[in-house]
Design a protein around this nucleic acid. Sequence first.
DNA 1: CATAGGATCGCCT
DNA 2: GGCGATCCTATGT
Length: 199
Amino acid sequence: MVLIKKDFYLRDDVVAIARELIGKLIVTRIDGIFTSGIILETEAYEGVTDRASHAYAGRRSARTEIMYKSGGTAYVYLCYGVHSLFNIVTNHEDIPHAVLIRGIIPVDGIPYMLKRTGKKEIDLNFSNGPGKVSKALGIHYSHTGLSLLQIAAKESQPGIWLEDSGYKTNPAKIKNTPRIGVGYAGEDAKLHYRFVYYP
DNA sequence: CATAGGATCGCCT
DNA sequence: GGCGATCCTATGT
């Protein structure tokens, strides 16, 4: 297992990071349970210049403050009062870039993921949406602000991190499309900042 | 203080 | 394809 280190997250090009996250392994250790999955779908949110971003025009609040932390931090927030959406903060401190993880294919701890989601089996729709990803991995909006830069050592503490899985993606099969659900963002809704991989 | 609305999902028709 | 769930956040008075 190869932990993805800080330098990966600190780069300027959040769109390139979103593309490169396809095929990486996201691992959680929450309530003492290990679960993981290969990332299949991401979206880049390009900070202060991006109308679709919570940090557009430099907006700050108790919630979005996390986006201004340095790369390799978890930004998790509640959407529609129901779903915890998991994002990875990128770039240096005070540059509020982030990548939303929208889809995974489960790898480790599948019985626990089935239990968390109330499903009977893994199918193609099992975690093809950001709310479902968090539910399967046990991520809650209270986990916002966690560092992704170390493997969880303590039973009692929640941990989230990423690894190079060795999973080989075919770059030609990575689709690049506009983002989902950002119609309010005007021209920025047209940006091709979403990446989807169908193995 | 009040209120509208959201980077969604699953169930219903 | 439509809608309700469910609650935090931002914005306005």
